[in-house]
């Protein structure tokens, strides 16, 4: 008997049952966008409101200026249509030499302040983890209330990876002291588009 069969033989659980209890979700009071922003900020991300998507390249330039970043920039293909000439990025995924990655979130989750990043040809995953600075564009109209709402996207499109990102990378493995920038981005900056 294979390991699979011998394990399954021990696990017989009877027919699936109808679940009775309705799923419980924490209350999300007030404006989900405001909650989203406050949760993200509590997780050490910074946020900036922009009126139009077209303002993103300028916001990226300003961010680079403020943080004195002169290194390479990579931008997700989903944002390739913007006027990037002032920044001069590569469009696509990235390698370890990129200082700053710009990507597009599919959605946001107000409950936790999480960005919902789906892998795909227009939204490569490396941008989320390799650069020191991660800038994420999210449309306020896409802010969802609960985790479950975001996870519906799993069923809908089943990307290779769905990353819920809530703040920059951190570790508390030395003396339980939180230190940002463990392996992933040291800084997460979110550009909210009206």
């Amino acid at each position: 008997m294979s390991a699979r069969d011998s394990i399954l033989a021990k696990l017989h659980g009877g027919p699936p049952v109808k679940r009775r209890d309705p799923p419980l979700r924490p209350a999300v009071h007030g404006d989900p966008v405001r909650l989203f922003v406050s949760r993200l900020q509590a997780a050490a991300a910074s946020c900036e409101h922009l009126a139009r998507l077209g303002q993103v390249p300028d916001a990226v330039s300003a961010y680079r200026c403020a943080h004195q970043l002169g290194g390479p920039v990579a931008v997700a293909p989903a944002l390739a249509g913007l006027a990037w000439s002032g920044v001069g990025p590569t469009i696509g995924s990235c390698d370890e030499n990129v200082d700053l990655g710009v990507s597009l979130a599919q959605a946001g989750v107000a409950e936790t302040g999480s960005l919902v990043m789906l892998s795909g040809p227009d939204t490569p995953t490396r941008l989320n983890f390799l650069p020191d600075h991660h800038l994420v564009v999210v449309h306020t109209a896409s802010i969802l209330r609960h985790l479950e709402d975001a996870l519906l996207l799993l069923d809908a499109s089943l990307p290779r990876a769905l990353n819920l990102i809530t703040g920059p990378s951190r570790t508390a493995d030395v003396e339980q002291t939180i230190q940002l920038g463990a392996h992933g981005p040291r800084a997460l900056h979110v550009l909210l588009i009206k």
Binding site: R39, A43, E111, T112, G113, S114, L147, L151, L154, L158, P159, R160, A161, L162, N163, L164, I165, T166, G167, P168, S169, R170, G184
Partner: peptide, 12 residues
């Protein structure tokens, strides 16, 4: 934490 910095879902 309400949620960790990264919660990831890998499917294939």
């Amino acid at each position: 934490q309400p949620i960790t910095a990264y919660t990831s879902f890998f499917s294939g």
